[in-house]
Simulated scan of single mutants.
Amino acid sequence: MSDFLSSAKNFVNSAVSRTSWEAQKQMRVRSKQTEIDKLLEQRHQLMDELGQVAMNLYQQGSLSDSQLSRLCASIFELDHDLRSRETQLQDAKNEAYPADQFGPEPTMNYAPPTPSSNASAPGNPPNNNYNNANAGGYVPPTSTPNAAPDAQSQRCPHCGNPLRPNALYCRNCGTKLR
């Protein structure tokens, strides 16, 4: 009877681990899809603005390259961001459940933790990243995105306006940066 309960417990633990992993995967996929949708909306707005500017200038007989280059550069950057996010979305959709990583541990020789091994005992800092031998897993990111301090200080060599990190073109004047 004890073996049956242990087997049932292992089965339930495995199912819970997989369900949790699948839910997290769906959250990552939805997040990337939302980012893609926002980029497409921005691109659509810029294309509308580009069309309006071009039509107005055309009607006035004074179509200027510098005015259009700013909008074209912004559209080009959004297209680059869009391709990157679509690749990330596809990677998230193609992730496979790592069954060996989240499989339940055998409980035959289980011993409850002793007070001396308690991570939150006085004098020991609490371990909140779940990175111990039995948890098998979660390690938070060691760096945050957009943490580069000099990324905000980059400026266009032509017009001096601030640049987005990894920008290929200046959004203001359209100068090619790489």
Results as ranks from 00 to 15, higher is better:
G61D: 10
C173H: 00
S143A: 06
Y138P: 00
A54C: 05
D65A: 12
S74A: 04
E77P: 02
A133H: 02
P165A: 15
N56T: 10
Q33D: 02
V12D: 10
Q33I: 00
S143L: 02
L39D: 07
V12H: 12
L68V: 04
T144A: 06
I36K: 00
E105N: 11
C72P: 03
G103W: 02
Q90M: 12
Y169V: 10
V139F: 07
N56V: 06
L163Y: 04
F4M: 09
P145V: 12
P140N: 02
A135I: 10
K25E: 02
A23F: 03
G51Y: 01
V12P: 11
S17L: 04
S117F: 10
M27W: 01
Q88H: 13
A23M: 02
Q52T: 09
P122M: 07
Q154H: 05
A73N: 01
V16F: 14
R83Q: 15
A92S: 10
H44I: 08
S117A: 14
M27E: 05
F76T: 15
S14T: 11
I36Y: 02
A15E: 13
R155I: 12
V53N: 11
N56W: 04
R30E: 01
N129G: 09
N56K: 05
L89E: 01
G160F: 13
L177F: 06
G103Q: 12
V29C: 09
L168K: 03
M27I: 04
S117P: 10
S62H: 01
D150F: 13
S64Q: 14
G61V: 09
A96K: 13
Q101L: 14
S143M: 02
P106D: 15
A167H: 07
A148W: 08
D91A: 06
A73S: 03
A167N: 13
Y97A: 09
N128C: 02
N10G: 15
C159R: 00
F11I: 08
D65Y: 04
N124S: 14
A23V: 01
G174A: 11
S153A: 11
M27Q: 08
R28I: 10
V29D: 05
G137M: 07
D3S: 03
A167V: 11
L5Q: 06
H44V: 04
N127E: 08
R43S: 09
N124L: 09
P115W: 00
E49Y: 07
S117V: 15
F102L: 09
K32R: 13
P113C: 06
L63H: 06
A135N: 15
S69R: 07
Y110D: 02
D37E: 01
P125K: 04
P165N: 15
L71P: 05
P125T: 03
A148N: 15
M47L: 06
N10Q: 14
Q59A: 14
L63D: 08
P157Q: 03
A73K: 00
R171V: 05
K176A: 01
A147I: 06
L63S: 08
S7R: 04
I36L: 03
T34R: 10
L68E: 00
G137H: 03
H158D: 11
V16N: 13
A167E: 13
S116Q: 13
G137D: 00
A147E: 13
R30P: 03
M55G: 05
P113F: 04
Q101K: 15
C72T: 11
M55C: 15
S17Q: 06
Q52I: 05
V139W: 00
A135Q: 14
N161Y: 09
